[in-house]
Nucleic acid binder design. Structure first.
Lengths: 225, 225
DNA sequence: TAGATTGTTAATCGATTAACAATC
DNA sequence: TAGATTGTTAATCGATTAACAATC
């Protein structure tokens, strides 16, 4: 199913990778909805609020060619995007922090369906340890290290209160995870070989809050073609 | 409590606003932890993986001055950041989509504590309508418009399946919300006067997945001073 | 063939960093 | 005073957009 193509140039800029995830999401629904074989840079741009130029630049980073006058073959594009983003890889994931958010993440089937297989939930609060979360039981945070190395956990999701985030991240890194998704309010610093993605809802809400407050003076950055 | 200062230049770039939210988060815990009166651009930079130059540039966008040899007064900085980000404003928020994620968001006390007051949860699935979510009952999506205009809802959080996201957004916009937080997989297009922030966990996980897969060739972008 | 759309180069724009005078 | 740290200007770097030859 997944051809062993590699990306053309070795490093794809983060800004481009972020948009690749959007192209993937769009292409997936696009294919389903109207069985179209082809999608143009123009169409992609319009759907995602970009210029067609940006789309073509972005897609030039992956090892896949469009065809003049037609555009990009939808299923082919889908396949290459999946390869590039690791969307067809099964990852072993644990969640640290069994608060509201952590529990919700752990129970969310969507992640599993997309290959992010949550196989453990941890909390340092004894009152939460042992609780059932979907098919899993909350384990004590002291067990993280052993669990990660025994199970070969790839990704740690950090969903703890701000003060504890860096400490938890340090444990995860020492335990051997390959990447971290940070949902906690405070920034996490990791060594070069452990990428971290910050996905903090409160920060996003504050950004929105600012934009609303100063909406009159703000200019949008979404071009229409 | 909130001095009526305004930002210096009318528009703060989105990249800067995003970091302001991080400065805020850091400053809040920094103040609490070690009662320090002053924080330098150097310290902020180190904590957040930036250069001190970036920090000073960023802070030059807000109407607040540091003092040579000492840095920035922590409480003062905190106040101005809160003003700029609207962190001391109470917003009325509704959640559309009562799936796992939507329900988790609605029940998460942290948002309420930070001024994002969730006063309604909606779903178009009759099976979910009427269910209790914390102190709220899930309402039918058909009631969104009336609810938004009557209650003066400011922010709509979209947590529905990808196909439905734009439709839901359109209803929210027509109903008069001032901003949208999009948690659904697909991109949302809004008119200029309704800012939208994309906060999609699956996209973040895919970004992480890519970075892990191609870690050897990737360069980190977090400078150390 | 003629027209549309790609891939790519060059131009523009914006964001980050370096450097340093001002100042506490 | 001497030294440290700000605020700001200028330089660099990277990302986006425009333009157009190649091509299907």
């Amino acid at each position: 199913m997944c051809t062993m193509k590699r990306t053309k140039s070795s490093v794809i800029p983060a800004s481009v990778v972020r948009r690749l995830t959007e192209y993937l999401a769009f292409t997936q629904t696009f294919g389903n909805e109207n069985g179209d074989q082809w999608v143009s840079s123009q169409e992609l741009a319009q759907a995602l609020g970009l210029t067609s130029s940006t789309v073509r630049q972005d897609l030039s980073h992956i090892d896949f060619s469009g065809i003049s006058k037609r555009g990009y073959h939808v299923r082919g594009l889908l396949g290459v995007l999946e390869d590039t983003l690791g969307a067809n890889t099964i990852w072993k994931v644990i969640v640290v922090g069994a608060g509201n958010l952590g529990v919700a993440i752990a129970q969310n089937d969507e992640f599993r369906e997309r290959g992010f297989n949550i196989i453990g939930v941890f909390d340092k609060d004894d009152a939460k340890v042992g609780r059932q979360v979907g098919t899993l039981k909350v384990q004590n945070s002291s067990a993280i290290k052993e669990f990660v190395s025994e199970q070969g956990v790839d990704i740690g999701i950090v969903a703890v209160p701000p003060g504890a985030a860096q400490t938890v991240a340090d444990v995860l890194i020492a335990s051997g995870v390959h990447g971290i998704l940070n949902l906690s309010l405070s920034h996490i610093i990791t060594p070069e070989n452990v990428p971290v993605i910050e996905a903090r809802l409160t920060c996003s809400l504050l950004e929105l809050s600012h934009r609303i407050k100063f909406a009159k003076t703000a200019k949008r950055s979404v071009p229409r073609e």
